[in-house]
Write a protein that binds this DNA or RNA. Structure first.
Lengths: 216, 216
DNA sequence: TCGTTGATCCCCATAACGGGGGAGCGTGTG
DNA sequence: CACACGCTCCCCCGTTATGGGGATCAACGA
């Protein structure tokens, strides 16, 4: 399965790997799985975004396996910060459920791999080896979610912003006041939103956007 | 930390424990954690609801640590089926994020404990020991979510039904036609929904209901 | 039995929404 | 430079939603 050596001890040119996940059992399971692979060496574990960033800068691992949901700054933001100071570091998103929103944000943050937590160990190990070699690795089960995320660019920023306000119970007039624009402008935006989301009412548009994680 | 023995081998009166989770790394991490506790013995692992039910009936563990989200039938339904044929079996819900809906359904299914995956090992072990002794155990971080789930009975069935239709883009008139009632009745229901959810608009009501999983 | 609650229906008013058209203005891209 | 696109604003119109005030009736439980 691995490409080098037969040793049981750490290898000089091993892939250094960091784990960032707020679930202790996940970290432990992952470390155990990786410890069986001779050419992968786990050099650190973090349980939240801040410490992941700090640790990554000190230990400069080749690869980080990173959960998206963590306390403090989330995995995406942590990835962004890490790649800003250390572009050579390859980050593998390790997520429980495929969520369009987070995945595309992960891609934008410069992540190299996408794994589901239900992935078998062999897949996880392969992903680490592949991204450390410069490739991307996308969990087969995750590919469709990434593909169908064209929804991301469907609405403009302004439209998303307005839709978010509608979801918070604001009327056209409320939105207009808040954004310092005319009510007519808001109505215009809303018409576009309805057309793009193929919704009959603003209420349905909000429901669609919430379900597809276009807004929160 | 544990109450009995100093042995490194399994103990005769050990708590038998089963793990049901679709994430291999979680199962592995959990098994590793529990293997360090002398009076807990892991007697099986399942990766989906069906096999969890089948395995529970064959091996009759004292305690099952069960993820809510699994392929096939989910953890709740698995718990229900297991407790139907084996009421002595104590089930600990083991979930990533606290979700009102699933937690209350878990309680209804007769589960005895509620853990977050980010719980430290000591908490997990304590939970297993406590529920095997007949107590309930609720992760402190989870208690507020369970308490605030009064939202469950807040809306009547009819109100929930109507709110669901609103989320699908129907107008008052559409709803009235579909449900064979007067539009005035729908308006009356909507007024009540807005009041109960403390929403200013139907759109906000739908957003709230979606976020709190009152509707889908 | 009486009170409560859910579901149904009705009246009124004002406010908000949905849909159609057009148009100007800045930005950025080919 | 021309063109597309996002954002802004305006007009028109009819429909729908919101927020009060009522009311009736059946079912359920104290």
């Amino acid at each position: 399965m691995q490409t080098t050596t037969n040793a049981s001890q750490s290898v000089a040119d091993a892939i250094t790997c960091m784990i960032a996940d707020d679930h202790e059992v996940v970290r432990e399971g992952l470390r155990l799985a990786l410890s069986r692979v001779p050419n992968i060496r786990v050099v650190g574990e973090a349980s939240d975004g801040e410490s992941a960033v700090a640790m990554a800068q000190r230990r400069r691992p080749d690869v980080i396996v990173m959960d998206l949901r963590m306390g403090g700054i989330d995995g995406i933001e942590a990835a962004r910060q890490i790649r800003k100071t250390n572009p050579a570091c390859r980050i593998v998103i390790f997520t429980g459920q495929p969520e369009r929103n987070l995945l595309t944000r992960g891609r934008d943050a410069g992540c190299a791999g996408y794994l589901l937590k239900e992935a078998p160990h062999t897949t996880i190990i392969r992903a680490i080896e592949r991204v450390s070699g410069g490739d991307e690795f996308i969990d087969p089960a995750l590919a469709p979610a990434l593909a169908s995320s064209e929804r991301e660019g469907l609405l403009t920023n302004r439209e998303r912003e307005i839709l978010q306000l509608l979801a918070n119970g604001m009327s056209n007039n409320d939105v207009a006041t808040k954004l310092f624009i005319s009510q007519e402008t808001v109505k215009s935006h809303v018409r576009h939103i309805l057309a793009k989301l193929e919704a009959d009412t603003r209420t349905q548009a909000v429901a669609i956007a919430l379900r597809e994680a276009i807004i929160d």
